[in-house]
Design a protein around this nucleic acid. Structure first.
Lengths: 163, 163
DNA sequence: AACTATTGCGCAATGC
DNA sequence: TGCATTGCGCAATAGT
């Protein structure tokens, strides 16, 4: 909502982005325009009041025969719009970049999560095995053979995880 | 006078994409262009050869003073470039959308993974608890009357334990 | 009704 | 040389 209600013409500096708005949109390309080359530029040269308008239909409509587009307000509006356009495009681009970045972040997180899953799965499987073993021991026999291997040496401390 | 751009309505039809290259790029937006509105168009009105060019260096260079932009090859090149531009922009936009979609997919996957992690964690915790319980039983060995958990050294001998 | 924000488009410079 | 990208301005339109 930060909309500077007052369109102060002149070098407008909205944010940190400097928008050098040259007076005429003669375009100010990054590289110095070759002075002797392509001295062409879009010369709007619009029609002041449409000379060949069909037979003056409803002649009462032009407040100012001399001001339709060739000056003043028109120019001002154009300039404002140009600024708006620039801003909008910048935003758009920024957004695209942000989205891309988000993809990267999400990808990373995904990997992390997957690793974690792997770990947990492993732990689970180990515990389960131990359990089964135990159950077997209990069920199979009741007498612990002296040197029974794989029996139940000692519950020991579980590996525990490292969450 | 020179209203050079006499863009003969070459209704250029390259592909399926109709590029109505009307006389002036008055733009032919999707919606029907108001016939009686905005009779303005960017009239390129370029400068023939820039009179103020530095001293006529290598004067021999203009094959046709009358053909620089107002016709032939120029127009063709423009048209091509316009197509290229359109294509490029379409691609760009498409890419942006794809990226956005990717974000959504990744987000979903993320949620899935997290759910899985939660599940595994729970399972693990259950098993661990069981284990601990068991360990206690074993450690306490013989049935503790009721609340003799302080410690019962009991050199034990793993035996006679009824679950 | 007046503005800004978006969007499609063409032009030209520049990057391969 | 030719297509691809990119910045830019114009105009139509959507959104407030």
């Amino acid at each position: 909502m930060s909309r500077p209600p007052q369109p102060k013409l002149t070098t407008a500096e909205h944010n940190g982005v400097s928008v050098i708005q040259s007076q005429a949109h003669t375009a100010a390309p990054p590289s110095p325009p070759p002075p002797a080359l392509t001295g062409l530029q879009q010369v709007p040269q619009l029609l002041p009041t449409d000379p060949s308008s069909a037979g003056g239909k409803s002649p009462s409509k032009m407040k100012k025969p001399s001001a339709d587009k060739d000056s003043d307000e028109y120019r001002q509006r154009r300039e404002r719009n140009n600024l708006a356009v620039k801003k909008s495009r910048m935003r758009s681009k920024q957004k695209a970049m942000d989205t891309q970045q988000r993809v990267n972040e999400l990808k990373e997180e995904n990997e992390r999560l997957e690793a974690k899953i792997k770990l947990l799965s492993k732990e689970l499987s180990v515990l389960k095995d131990l359990f089964l073993e135990h159950a077997h021991n209990l069920a199979d026999n009741v007498q612990p053979p002296a040197g029974a291997e794989g029996a139940s040496p000692a519950p020991n401390s579980t590996s525990t995880n490292g969450q």
